[in-house]
Amino acid sequence: MMSINFVQAVLVVFLLFALSRVVLRFKERQIKIGEFLFWSLSFAGAVVVVVLPGETTKLAQLLGVGRGVDLIVYASIVTLFYICFRTYIQLENMRHEITELVRKLALEKKSK
């Protein structure tokens, strides 16, 4: 029978809580299907990694990385970089929307 230690249990509870939040936000239509799939798969994947750490080593060896932990670190860095990049773009677009608003106000005031 598979046994899990205290740290694993805490992590699993936390990840399941996060997963439930994602489902809830999707039900409330606060996130789109793409975001729902991304976050659900991320948290579900993390649960598998926590419960079955040996499996990541098998996958890592398959990819030629070595240890499972290394694979997780590399994947996390890549994911974080990507999220950071997307956030930057969203921020720029949001700044531009403010500019559009300021422009609209300026031009409307001028034409009055």
Partner: peptide, 11 residues
Amino acid sequence: VTHVVNRGLGA
């Protein structure tokens, strides 16, 4: 035409 807040050269 006046921008109510500073938005930069591109704006």
